[in-house]
């Protein structure tokens, strides 16, 4: 059907991003294909090393623990932070990934986790790592006749510590910054959302952490310099508003590191 209709058709999952822009008449697709109640997309499957979630599973199902969370509570926490309860009851994990808003929870969180998605067209099926799936603002490597059908999540080791920090003015809004830190023995995965068109890997911050004594949180200034490097920003050239945004990102990342590295407080 998608091959036939091409750009005239949009896939409708929960509709919590598509319906607002349709109501604002910013999008007027001639055909909607509602997949929100396709049974095959709503199941969850698990084995000893991974969990597979159907793409049409809602944020609410994850928030309420109706599906397994192999990431020691990170999924549940991320889901509970998305919009408002009424949004979470319709919005889906696959829909959020296909929509590809870097300020949204799933693109950044699931990329940080190292999740893969299964992508299917009428002819073919492929598995794509989320690291590399997002190409730009609302743009992914999905072809126009393809659909995300499932998300595959690795199980965290028991000793893994994580933190998800979002900075926003009001509960339920998109974050002005969102940092995910996942720390397990000898390695760290640190990602930043809402900063660029796609989730950003904070490789310089990860290196900073590796060079730092374990359990010690680097100073905010150090973190800010590394975040600037990861965002390709030259601090002396930034105007005040840009410096303010950088500071928000740096503080958000610093909070995430503090929580993920703190031995007493559970993440």
């Amino acid at each position: 059907m998608l091959t036939e209709l091409g750009d005239d058709a949009k896939i409708l999952a929960g509709g919590q991003s598509l319906l607002p822009i349709m109501n604002l008449r910013l999008a007027e697709p001639a055909h909607l294909v509602d997949i929100s109640r396709v049974g095959d997309l709503m199941g969850a499957d698990e084995d000893t090393t991974s969990v597979t979630l159907g793409a049409a599973i809602t944020h609410q199902a994850i928030e309420d623990g109706l599906v397994p969370d192999p990431c020691l509570g990170l999924l549940t926490t991320a889901a509970a932070g998305i919009g408002y309860r009424a949004i979470r009851c319709r919005g889906t994990v696959g829909g959020s990934l296909a929509h590809a808003d870097s300020a949204a929870e799933w693109p950044t969180v699931l990329t940080a986790i190292g999740a893969d998605v299964t992508v299917r067209s009428a002819q073919d099926e492929r598995t794509v790592p989320l690291r590399g799936f997002f190409h730009g603002f609302f743009t992914t490597s999905l072809e126009s006749d393809e659909l995300i059908t499932a998300v595959h999540l690795p199980r965290f080791a028991k000793s893994t510590r994580w933190a998800l920090e979002k900075t926003n003015r009001k509960e339920g809004e998109f974050g002005e910054s969102m940092a995910v830190a996942i720390v397990s023995e000898g390695s760290a995965s640190i990602w930043l959302g809402a900063a660029k068109d796609v989730p950003v890997n904070l490789a310089h911050v990860e290196t900073l952490l590796a060079d730092h004594p374990a359990d010690q949180v680097p100073a905010l200034g150090e973190v800010r310099d590394r975040v600037a490097a990861d965002l390709d920003l030259s601090v002396p050239e930034l105007d005040l508003a840009q410096r303010h945004r950088l500071q928000i990102h740096a503080v958000t990342v610093h909070r995430a590191l503090s929580r993920a590295l703190s031995p007493e407080v559970p993440a």
């Binding site: 509709g15 109501n23 509602d34 929100s36 009424a86 949004i87």
Partner: peptide, 25 residues
Amino acid sequence: QGVCGSCTVLMDGLPVRSCLTLAAS
């Protein structure tokens, strides 16, 4: 556009924005 919450109704026991839910769904 899903921001104000005035149109919230229960669908199968859960709250949804009725302005962001198509009748057909």
